[in-house]
Amino acid sequence: MSSERKQRIAIFKFASCDGCQLSLLDAEDELLKVAEAVEIAYFPEASRAMMKGPYDVGLVEGSIITHHDADKIQQVRRQCRLLVTIGACATSGGIQALRNWKDAAEFVRTVYPSPDFVQTLKMSTPIAEHVPVDFELRGCPINKLQLVELLSALIAGRKPNIPTYSVCMECKRRATVCLAVSRGEPCLGPVTMAGCGALCPAYGRPCFGCFGPMDSPNTVALAADFAAKGHSHAEIERLFRSYSAWAWQFRRATEERRQA
């Protein structure tokens, strides 16, 4: 492996908080090994590396919220052999997708003294609504161990071990007592993709779905169950509309919810 050419990695940012990119810098123990194993060719947030494409792997953080973003992602796609979206913003539109139910222009008028300078799209949309995406890493932010696993797999040319089942599987493995069953808390774990290691429930906080929908989520049934347990439609809407609000399965939970 060492004799082969190093993979050239580029990291791009769209509308986001930088938290996912920071996960890479936060992988302290692995960072030196990562830096040795790949060539970080483009990473404006963290280094002077601004080498021209093409790249083997493009890691894309953030959602598309401006015309400029929409043009730029097309260029990025053309420069990357593999395109990997990282984090809730890039994979589902992020928390900023809450604007999709509101009038973005009105926000702009309220917040900015010179609204004319702000050019924004009506919606915050995930990267996959604009260009083909080869792989997704979920989470708000992503789990740095999953990022290192993905890079290790890409270098070795093997399948990454990124599960797509529910958070419940991880709760049970670590023997966390189910918060939904033992305390009656509304938890999104049963419809949310694993990968965080069932972090929140381990600290007594129900899952708020930051990893987005799992591979085959029955969000409509979970919403119906919340309703049957006395949660109002507004409460249920708030639960599903957070970090992964614009993921279609989460949207469907409240928009097409069957009468309970």
Partner: peptide, 8 residues
């Protein structure tokens, strides 16, 4: 239709 497929 009711099952979440969560695996619990």
């Amino acid at each position: 239709a009711r099952c979440l497929g969560c695996g619990n």
